[in-house]
């Protein structure tokens, strides 16, 4: 089932010549984590703002949850969750009060707040004024706020930025659980590691256009080298050798290494999403 269907979406900000988004088309399926990647200013957040109904005056068509985006009214947000990068909470209120305040704005019963606070380890600080929170705690509170009304579609921006690996993993684990429950996630991030880990498909945006869309795995295989790197330890220290993947089964040197040396690591040389990012967008930046 298709959750988001965008075709030929364009938007030019008033007073600028070049379009911020220049005729992009893509689909996001239900229960998919869709990574939207690219350098700052490439049009990622503009696209995201269009889909969050924050921007008007775009052209093309966008259908979300089987209804045209323009036909959706305020009830759109009963089904959608949003968490942008800058945490925006009421600093004078406690975490729980912040969540309550937002929960009351929804037509449906909001029951997930406490569970989600437990997931991101905020329960102990639920009654602390948000003004005293660290950046990471505010980030985690934003996460709870975006998901507490059980949205079917969530727009997430850098959900793990500034979080230590333990808290980052709490979030990524939970996103995978939500995906299994059918929640669709539209994710923008600069962290290629997270994108690779979470996303079913990623799109790279460069100067308002989509340069690539595919699964991370396909991209990495397609753009990698068909080689295997073997690291092994000898008396003098660590060494590495590179073998072509084709015909490696008959390679004597490879067989000998495996037999006689203390192997530390063996890795095929797929491209990382980071390599692909730099290759796809780098030239334009520098």
């Amino acid at each position: 089932m298709t959750m988001i269907q965008v075709s030929d979406l364009s938007l030019t900000y008033p007073g600028t010549r070049d379009p911020a988004v220049d005729g992009i088309s893509f689909e996001v399926g239900q229960g998919e984590i869709f990574g939207f990647l690219g350098p700052s200013g490439a049009g990622k957040s503009t696209t995201q703002r269009v889909l969050c109904k924050l921007l008007q005056h775009w052209s093309g068509s966008a259908t979300v949850m089987d209804r045209s985006l323009t036909a959706w009214g305020q009830d759109y947000f009963a089904h959608v969750g949003v968490s942008f990068e800058l945490p925006n909470h009421y600093l004078q209120l406690t975490a729980r009060e912040n969540l309550k305040l937002f929960a009351n704005l929804y037509p449906q019963d909001v029951t997930r707040s406490e569970d989600l606070m437990a997931v991101v380890d905020l329960t102990a600080d639920a009654d602390t004024r948000v003004g005293q929170f660290s950046k990471g705690m505010m980030q985690r509170l934003s996460f709870v706020r975006a998901f507490q009304h059980e949205p079917r579609l969530v727009f997430l921006d850098e959900p793990t930025a500034g979080l230590d690996p333990v808290n980052a993993r709490r979030i990524t684990d939970h996103l995978q659980t939500l995906r299994a429950d059918g929640c669709t996630i539209f994710l923008t991030t600069h962290d290629m590691h997270i994108a690779d880990l979470l996303c079913d498909r990623v799109a790279f945006m460069v100067q308002g256009r989509l340069a690539l869309i595919d699964t991370p795995r396909n991209l990495r295989l397609a753009q990698g080298r068909k080689q295997v790197q073997v690291e092994y330890r000898t008396g003098e220290g660590r060494r590495q050798e590179l073998f072509d993947l084709d015909g490696i089964g008959g390679n004597e040197r490879f067989a000998e290494l495996l037999r006689s040396e203390e192997i530390e690591t063996i890795h095929t040389q797929e491209a990382t999403l980071e390599d692909i990012f730099i290759r796809t967008t780098g030239e334009q930046l520098l």
């Binding site: 295989l221 037999r259 095929t268 797929e270």
Partner: peptide
């Protein structure tokens, strides 16, 4: 027997990716 197992794998199968799990 690990060395032989790995070698057999590379010889007999079409290996797409291989990663040791450090």
């Amino acid at each position: 027997g690990t060395a032989q197992a790995v070698h057999d794998l590379f010889r007999d199968e079409h290996v797409l990716t291989v990663h040791s799990e450090e």
